[in-house]
Amino acid sequence: MFSKRIFMRNNIFKLNWGTASYGLLLKEIYDADIFNNQFIQNTIGVNAEGSNRINFENNNFINNGWAIKFMGACYGSRLVRNNFMNNAFDIAYTGNINGNIFDKNYWSEYSGYDLDKDNIGDVPFRPVKLFSYIVNQTPETIVLLRSLFVDIINFSEKVSPVFTPDNLKDNNPLMTPVQ
């Protein structure tokens, strides 16, 4: 909390599994570099609030409930070359895009194709599902988790985004995980 220029490298945040548990809680953190960390099986991998210009690179987010939760007032963060695998929700987001950048990450839920075989998917990936957006607005709707209706609205939102921020997307999603 309330710190500047922190480097977090090669840490393992693991098994923080409970209703009020976090892997990493960032509040009022500026200009931090978070490189090469493992976030495995946390309810919330990273919870970021009021944190600006944070670089996430080469991190693994595996089997988390939420991989990263941006709670608001987060400006200019960069998420590049991270692996997001089998998370219930990859990103939860409130408000506008605020200059945050998602680029060249691997998303296990990505279902696009790669025609020119350059290992970069040809269709942008939108990490915020409609259900994750709704849960952010009204936390109680989480009781509908894994219901068929939720799958249907997620799918229709994926086909034509209406509610989720339009430019919150990864334009160059990777086809294979980052080593």
């Binding site: 409970g18 209703t19 219930a88 936390p139 989480i142 009781v143």
Partner: peptide, 18 residues
């Protein structure tokens, strides 16, 4: 659905409502 979800790990996601 809720009865089965509550028995699984994923129930931690349900948070306060859960």
């Amino acid at each position: 659905r809720i009865l089965i979800l509550l028995k699984l790990d994923i129930s931690a996601l349900l948070g306060y409502t859960g």
